[in-house]
Amino acid sequence: MPAGKPAGSGGQPITGIDRLIHEPSRYLIMAYLFVVESADALFLQRQTGFTWGNLSSHLSRLETAGYVVIKKDFLDKKPHTMLQLTDAGRTAFKLYRRTMKQALEDLPGP
């Protein structure tokens, strides 16, 4: 299968798949941030079980793509870093799920 063109029904490539979200680790991070309003890095690390380095690199990629925003906040008068999906990230995640659902539904039966 050529890179960037996952096979769909009838050997046709699935178009519109966001490769950035398609990576399982990043999908999990996006999914957690989708179901909460915002969360800190520790929460994501505990939930996903990723190493700090791994989490950091995925978050950086998502931030660069404009899907995640890092917000400085205060918790108990101490600076606290919260992560949140941007509107673009939320839209991209919804679109990814819709595309994947459609692709799975279009698969030919046994």
Binding site: V35, V36, E37, S38, A39, D40, A41, L42, F43, L44, Q45, R46, Q47, L75, D76, H80, M82
Partner: peptide, 16 residues
């Protein structure tokens, strides 16, 4: 919660 829980499992604001 602030003293024991959040420094251990992190903090998240719940969805709507």
């Amino acid at each position: 919660k602030r003293w024991l829980t959040y420094p251990r499992i992190g903090y998240a604001r719940l969805g709507q």
